[in-house]
Design a protein around this nucleic acid. Structure first.
Length: 761
DNA sequence: TCACAGTGACTTTTT
DNA sequence: GTCACTGTGA
């Protein structure tokens, strides 16, 4: 690692960079914070930097650790880095969590977990906690699990004295302790552990810590604005005195604080890493000028920013369009119309993206587009790995790896139904617990639930016995098909210090049988294939197709225990994104604003810009700023054309609600956009809805009927009286004070079914 | 073990 | 309005 041998002649890849990008690439020595605005060529800088470190500064590729948040981003980064510098294939380019998993497998023993651990998702966590505390309602377990996840984002273990950054419910710690005890019994980990356990291990074990210092000389983190406190601690632990640290992020694009992301990490980076140099990338190559200006207007309304002004590199382009529509059907029709017209002029459907705040909003678009036969794909509503059939199959895989996996066992013991009801299941669990306690005293090892099943066979009633012995036979058969292989952690020192060997993930599987055959066998032998085949026919679902997809995705992994573990890591940690067939198809993209991060489209429509929908009604101060950043992220996805839509009314929970324009629309100067449709006069006058200051103009035809002081009855809210009647943009709006204390606004014209005027006798 | 009805919730969600 | 969960009864 000779840092002093700087390049004499810059290679090609440097010549395509602008001065700031180049500065960021060749910077060395002190910690570096790159503030990279949307569309400023951030990925290019990171990948070029990796290539430069290896090719020009002579760093060993294996001594570089590059961390991202999504598998997709990691893949893209790895691929692009490799194109610039082939040796970058040996660089550790991973997601935070897959790095944690790699680390924990190496040091499983020291961390007190099974080296064959699998990762529990939130759903599994809830099941586990429900098992740990019988009688706990699933709803309450889910709440506790939510807090457990959050608390782990702050690196607070169950025995912590205080969970003060968070407002945890009463008796939370009791549940947390119980949960963690149960989790450790299974030998598995949850997502939070993948970061928290490495942090704890590194901070207490100096030997391991120096091994990491020895291994990683460079640490780079992408999307740093979305890192949480635990991840910050991990960075601190991994950063030795000699380590070169470079983080890249954009505080204006921090949109995951509800998941524990801590903007403070990027805002205070320079305070924690002495001598930090900051480089700003402010040239935007993506959007045309009017779109970028709009984005700038919006984000400048936030106060908590490091501050950064993007400059458009693309001139020309049209002003964004803001369309006011009567309701969500018209909104969907408007989008469909726009897209159809552009398609007729030769624009591919795939150029378009329809963005919305919540998944539920996709429904009206789906209905409309289906009707008009416009092809579309919905991104990320029902996640592949969350599907029942996939979870079932994965539970089988997990159980084969680890027979103490409580959650997996529970899922598969009686699915498809083998006549093993709750009574039998409880007997097995009780016996398992007894085994667990016995071995704790004797220091022995047991085979978990499988052994518990086997020993109980003789004492079970006939029907249960048949079922359980069938289950045991299935597991035995499948285990016999799985060659043990090595678990990849046998020689930790070699793995950590190896500088030439390729990581097993990239192993070629030509000589070996592949894992997909095995998963196919599981689907058959378990009876799940047959079970879902029948279900598909009854319910017209696609479950078998999903199972096939899972089988296919295991193609690249060898048939061995380590291959299976790797596959599970891949599934759990780096979720399968949309299938290839989807991305090849020419179709409009329907997507939530959150999911658009890192993407771009030539034409973008941001829909549902109404107060209470976006931003959501409960957002204030800091979280309002986060919502605004979300709007900013949405706007900056657009390359050539941007459309914004806002509805006057929307059906919510089966009720038609009257809605005001989104607060964020007031951030944009009227001259910067082209307004079409029936814009509320209060909006044009700049009167914000929140203040409720609507000037009453001429009397409305309905005003004589719904007069102030009248008694009313509402289906949902009960009795009340009208405290205000006003005319807003040709619509008559009344404010009702209900007897339950709440007050609400209604438009009588749209609510005649739920609202009744009580005539006095 | 299954089927049905009543109840409640109903953001966003990289891993 | 819709879905998913929970508990009861056959």
């Amino acid at each position: 690692m000779n840092i002093s041998s700087v390049a004499q002649t810059p290679p090609d890849y440097l010549s395509v960079l602008n001065p700031e990008q180049k500065e960021a690439v060749i910077h060395a020595g002190s910690p570096l914070l790159i503030l990279a605005g949307a569309g400023s060529g951030k990925t290019r800088v990171i990948t070029t930097k990796i290539a430069y470190l290896i090719g020009k500064l002579g760093y060993d590729p294996r001594s570089i650790l590059a961390v991202t948040f999504t598998k997709k981003a990691a893949n893209e980064m790895a691929e692009r880095a490799r194109r610039l510098e082939p040796r970058a294939q040996y660089t550790q380019i991973r997601t935070f969590h897959s790095f944690g998993a790699w680390f924990l497998r190496l040091f499983a023993e020291e961390a007190g977990i099974d080296p064959h651990f699998t990762v529990y998702d939130e759903d599994d966590m809830v099941t586990l906690l429900t098992r740990a505390k019988p009688g706990l309602l699933r709803k309450d377990a889910a709440e506790a699990v939510h807090y457990i996840s959050r608390v782990k984002d702050y690196c607070l273990a169950a025995d912590a004295d205080d969970f003060s950054p968070l407002d945890v419910p009463e008796r939370f710690q009791e549940l947390y302790l119980l949960y963690d005890k149960k989790l450790r019994e299974t030998g598995n980990v949850d997502f939070g552990d993948l970061i928290m356990l490495p942090v704890r291990l590194l901070s207490t074990n100096t030997q391991i810590r120096s091994m990491m210092f020895e291994r990683f000389k460079v640490i780079m983190i992408d999307e740093y604005q979305d890192s949480n406190v635990a991840q910050f601690h991990l960075l601190q632990q991994l950063a030795g005195p000699e380590t070169y640290i470079c983080v890249v992020g954009d505080d204006d694009q921090s949109i995951y604080s509800f998941r524990g992301a801590e903007v403070e990490n990027i805002l205070t980076f320079q305070d924690h890493f002495a001598g930090t140099q900051i480089i700003r990338l402010e040239r935007n190559y993506r959007s045309v000028e009017p779109i970028l200006n709009t984005a700038g207007q919006v984000i400048s309304c936030n106060t908590e920013r490091l501050g950064k002004t993007l400059r458009a590199q693309r001139e020309g382009g049209a002003k964004p369009v803001l369309a006011f529509l009567p309701n969500q059907e018209d909104e969907a029709a408007y989008c469909a119309e726009l897209i159809t017209r552009s398609h007729e002029k030769g624009c591919p459907y795939a150029d378009w993206a329809v963005l919305y705040r919540t998944n539920a909003q996709s429904l009206s678009f789906e209905t409309e587009f289906l009707h008009r036969k416009i092809p579309y794909t919905v991104v990320g509503s029902l996640k592949f790995y969350e599907r029942e059939e996939i979870k079932d199959l994965l539970a089988f895989l997990k159980f084969l790896v680890n027979q103490k996996d409580d959650v997996a066992f529970l899922r598969i013991i009686n699915k498809p139904a083998r006549g093993i009801g709750s009574t039998t299941q409880e007997k097995i669990t009780a016996h398992f617990t007894a085994l667990e306690q016995n071995t704790q005293f004797s220091g022995g090892v047991h085979q978990g639930y499988l052994e518990a099943c086997r020993t109980l066979l003789s004492v079970l009633p006939k029907r249960a016995r048949t079922g359980v012995s069938e289950f045991v036979a299935i597991i035995d058969d499948l285990l016999a098909l799985l060659p043990a292989g090595d678990n990849g952690a046998e020689n930790v020192l070699a793995e950590v210090l190896a500088h030439d060997a390729e990581y097993p993930r990239l192993q070629s599987n030509e000589s070996q049988e592949c894992l997909s055959v095995f998963i196919q066998k599981i689907a058959e032998r378990s009876g799940l294939l047959e079970y879902y085949k029948a279900a598909d026919e009854i319910a017209q679902t696609q479950r078998i197709a999903n199972i096939e997809e899972l089988v296919k995705s295991a193609d690249l992994y060898p048939l061995s225990l380590s291959g299976l573990l790797e596959f599970l890591d891949h599934i759990e940690l780096d979720r399968i994104l949309e299938s290839e067939t989807d991305s090849e198809k020419d179709a409009v993209t329907f997507i939530t604003l959150h999911n658009t991060k890192g993407l771009e489209f030539p034409r973008v429509i941001i829909t549902g810009l109404e107060a209470g929908i976006f931003p959501r009604a409960d957002k204030h101060d800091r979280s309002l700023e986060e919502e605004r950043r979300l709007f900013y992220v949405g706007i900056t996805r657009a390359r050539d054309e941007l459309y914004l839509t806002s509805c006057n009314t929307r059906r919510l929970y089966g009720r038609t609600e009257f809605l005001y324009p989104s607060l964020f629309l007031y951030d944009i100067p009227l001259t910067a956009i082209r307004i079409i449709g029936n814009a509320p006069k209060s909006f044009l006058a700049g009167t914000r809805s929140q203040s409720g200051n609507h000037s009453v103009s001429q009397p409305h035809p309905l005003a004589g009927r719904w007069v102030k002081g009248s008694r009313i009855y509402h289906d949902e809210y009960g009795y009340g009286w009208i405290i205000k009647g006003e005319c807003v943009e040709n619509e008559y709006v009344i404010t009702i004070q209900f007897e339950n204390g709440s007050s609400k606004k209604f438009m009588p014209a749209y609510q005649s079914n739920s609202l009744t005027l009580i005539m006095e006798e």
